[in-house]
Design a protein around this nucleic acid. Structure first.
Length: 325
DNA sequence: AATGGATGCAACCGCCGGACT
DNA sequence: GAGTCCGGCGGTTGCATCCAT
């Protein structure tokens, strides 16, 4: 018998509205993430605590990269999935800008099919190092595992290397100035940042300036309007929401202003304190205004540390032939 | 232009494990 | 040690959008 739902009565379900997002972000601005149980009561949101947490971690949390996965990210996911299985949270820890949900969705919708296709097409070339490993005898399996680990090490060191372009740096062409990267006149085509409070604030600003006309509602409203605004700029926010039903524009403005305060506090909170304790890629992420990066981006896991610790010497041994495909 | 299937993604559900009493 | 609470995780669903016919 499972536990009863944490809050099954009177909670709203379904897509989040922009107003709810603002309320949630404002609350987290003040109190920080955590204590999700208290969030619905304190904010007045008619949402389950889980729903609040999920909304934050999967969508509102700063530093989340949305949009197309890069080839490097794709390869990392494929390989990590092969190594770790469907442990999406673990996989996501290697791609701090992506949420586990995102990775899971991407795997289920894209990569699995892609791999099946490739495996069917060129049996052997792809099977090397992937799920085919599950069908080989133990001795070979162990060796395969070693190879996998070596490959993972190399992939990690490549991906996390600050000098090389990688999945982590791909979206951060201006690691030292992420805010300007967003507000620059031409957003990068495939990367839509809808997640940081800064971005949300900017989007909402545009959204309020140009109240959307179409009648689409709810989550797609939120997401699409945000994404579209992010991609097309506030001036061209034409797709999207039905408009603010509940909150007055003054209220929204107030919340909105506080979001900018949030931004400032974020910038100031991105202190050396974190920089010192974070890995290079996390430092990069910091530049994306991650207020709770210490809490949200876990430090290197043991495995990761181990992989990276040994990466140096293993590279010398020679796994130059290690590749994903 | 209409329509029906395919696709993508946000959100929900149920379970698990750690922390606390 | 047992019970409860809460956060987190992975699987799944529902729905909007896309695309081919």
């Amino acid at each position: 018998m499972g536990r009863p739902p944490c809050c099954d009565k009177g909670v709203k379900k379904g897509p989040w509205t922009p107003e709810e997002d603002i309320i949630l972000v404002s609350y987290i601005q003040e109190h920080g993430p955590g204590n999700w149980r208290a969030v619905p009561t304190r904010t007045g949101l008619s949402r389950c605590s889980k729903s609040c947490r999920l909304r934050w971690t999967n969508y509102l949390r700063p530093g989340i990269k949305r949009g197309n996965f890069t080839e490097q990210e794709e390869k990392m996911i494929i390989h990590l999935q092969d190594l770790l299985g469907n442990r999406w949270a673990a996989i996501a820890s290697y791609l701090p800008q992506r949420t586990d949900n995102d990775i899971k969705n991407y795997w289920n919708t894209h990569l699995r099919k892609k791999l099946n296709k490739l495996q069917a097409g060129c049996e052997g070339s792809l099977g090397e190092g992937f799920s085919a490993s599950r069908q080989i005898p133990r001795g070979q399996w162990e060796r395969r595992l070693q190879t996998d680990i070596q490959m993972a090490k190399q992939a990690l060191s490549e991906a996390l290397s600050p000098e090389k372009p990688s999945c982590l740096s791909a979206s951060n062409s201006h690691p030292s100035d992420s805010s300007s990267s967003f507000s620059s006149s031409k957003p990068t085509q495939s990367l839509c940042y809808a997640s940081s409070a800064e971005n949300i604030a900017r989007m909402l600003k545009g959204w309020m300036k140009n109240p959307p006309k179409s009648s689409r509602t709810n989550s797609s409203v939120t997401q699409n309007s945000f994404n579209n605004l992010a991609a097309a700029g506030a001036d061209t926010a034409s797709s999207g929401a039905k408009g603010v039903k509940g909150a007055s524009s003054a209220e929204l403005s107030e919340n909105f202003e506080s979001l900018f305060d949030f931004d400032q506090s974020l910038e100031s909170s991105n202190s050396d304190q974190f920089s010192r304790s974070l890995s290079p890629e996390a430092t990069v992420l910091q530049d994306e205004s991650k207020p709770y990066i210490g809490a949200e981006i876990m430090p290197f896991s043991l495995l990761e540390k181990w992989l990276l610790d040994e990466a140096g010497c293993q590279e010398k041994v020679g796994c130059g032939d290690a590749k994903f495909f």
